[in-house]
Design a protein around this nucleic acid. Structure first.
Lengths: 256, 256
DNA sequence: CGCGATTTGTGCGCGTCTTCACAAGCGCCT
DNA sequence: AGGCGCTTGTGAAGACGCGCACAAATCGCG
């Protein structure tokens, strides 16, 4: 235990070390920690305490320590965490040590923006191919990539060893595209179309629906409005706090 | 109890009926139910069972019933839910009976796409103003709206009675924009910038980070790859299911 | 060398969310 | 009118996640 044991250090060749089955909530936060770590590293820091990293990531420090402890013991008591080591570990666990190729289907309004989004490349993702079903868009060049027809998906996916598919088509076309992606061997899909995708077992689907986010905010607006309408109920109401409180990720400062 | 009581039917004038304090997880699913309901209504259905609506929304039927029961009793045993009534109720709870005005700050790559996204208008949101700090972009017209300088935000926000602010700026500018939005009286923010926002109490912030979604998928890819590397452990491995299984919202079909 | 300051790692209690299973209620058919 | 099948609404139990609080460990300094 005293010896630093890297459960899955990149140096260890072959024999994948069976990732330690992290809780889903932890996995969802690791990318945020990673971003905060890179930010701190660029600022010149060598180490960081759980408190410092937690505030940079917008989470509770105990939660952060518990999350990191699930990756192994990479901190030093009394000192904190070594930035380089921690970045290396999280990137390994997230599978970012290899550059992953992404296929983007649907270069309409949103797809066009995604194709040009530089946040992907900077995180180790390479948009390897663009597809669309509209013959008008096929052949157009976006950000150095030529839009291909979606029928070419199986062939190109095999050539480029696509590991993630992004669906940015209208909702009616999304299921067919998902089927084609699955047939082409893609086992992870990020879906921006506002619909439920049906995929076989073993395929991961994450959905991002921009309108849903607004509707959730709308609910909270509605609730806040209904509360201020009867200001008698609550205790002191909105007591103006110091104001330095950071809202946690996708969570409102009010309520709890 | 036998009498249908609408806790907050839109007909009831004045005296906001104190929304019944829904669980956050339920609120996050209501928009998905709403979308499925509209879809079913367009298909000509009058009523729907919890099973039918659940599969259309990609969730467990028991969960759906519990979610809807928190709004009140709007189903009929032996029959199901009345589409029209349920749509009306959910829209009321989510605060969608009034059209909400949205201010979009940052009309770069992503912001440009958001400004042209028709999924907002169809859900009752009106993009009322566009802002940017770059003088080059100010004055440009996008989708019938003129881009204004961000300094005009306070004045315009008051004129247009903005209720939600969307931040689509680069990360370094996001905090300053958030501060300006808060100062202008906006209490709900949707943040696309990859950074943590610090806002005073009472302000809701939801964050959407496209790169994080990809990193989560990358983790699952990595895990799946490490599992197939040792095919002895699991039971029968990927037993090809009938294939009609719907993946639940932002949740993978594998695992658990 | 010892001690105190500091920080990590974690056991534990609590609240939330999910799921099962079933009683209660409704409509239809005979 | 009565019974039967179907569906909702909900109690209870289990799983999961969160945050406190503290023991264990490490560094620096006298």
């Amino acid at each position: 235990m005293s010896q630093h044991r890297h459960p899955g250090a990149p140096g260890r060749a072959g024999a994948v070390p069976a990732l330690p089955d992290l809780p889903e909530a932890t996995v969802a936060r690791l990318p945020e920690y990673l971003r905060a770590l890179h930010h701190l590293a660029e600022a010149g820091h060598e180490t960081v305490s759980s408190e410092g990293l937690a505030s940079a990531a917008g989470v509770n420090s105990a939660k952060l320590r518990k999350d990191l402890s699930q990756l192994g013991s990479y901190g030093t008591r009394g000192v904190g965490y070594d930035l380089g080591l921690l970045i290396e570990q999280i990137e390994y666990v997230l599978g970012l040590t290899q550059c992953r190729s992404v296929a983007l289907v649907g270069v309409g309004n949103l797809g066009h923006a995604l194709a040009g989004y530089d946040g992907f490349a900077s995180r180790g993702f390479r948009i390897a191919a663009l597809f669309d079903a509209d013959r008008v868009r096929v052949g157009k060049e976006i950000n150095g990539l030529v839009v291909r027809h979606v029928d070419e998906l199986p062939r190109v996916a095999a050539e480029e060893s696509i590991s993630i598919g992004v669906i940015a088509t209208p909702a009616p076309a999304a299921q067919a595209v998902a089927d084609q992606l699955v047939t082409a061997g893609v086992t992870s899909i990020l879906n921006f179309a506002p619909c439920v995708l049906s995929v076989p077992d073993g395929v991961d689907v994450r959905k991002v629906d921009l309108a849903i986010e607004l509707q959730i905010l709308s609910f909270h607006e509605h609730r806040k409005a209904s509360l201020t309408a009867l200001p008698v109920t609550g205790g002191t109401g909105l007591t103006a706090l110091p104001g330095g409180l950071a809202a946690t990720d996708t969570q409102e400062a009010i309520g709890t």
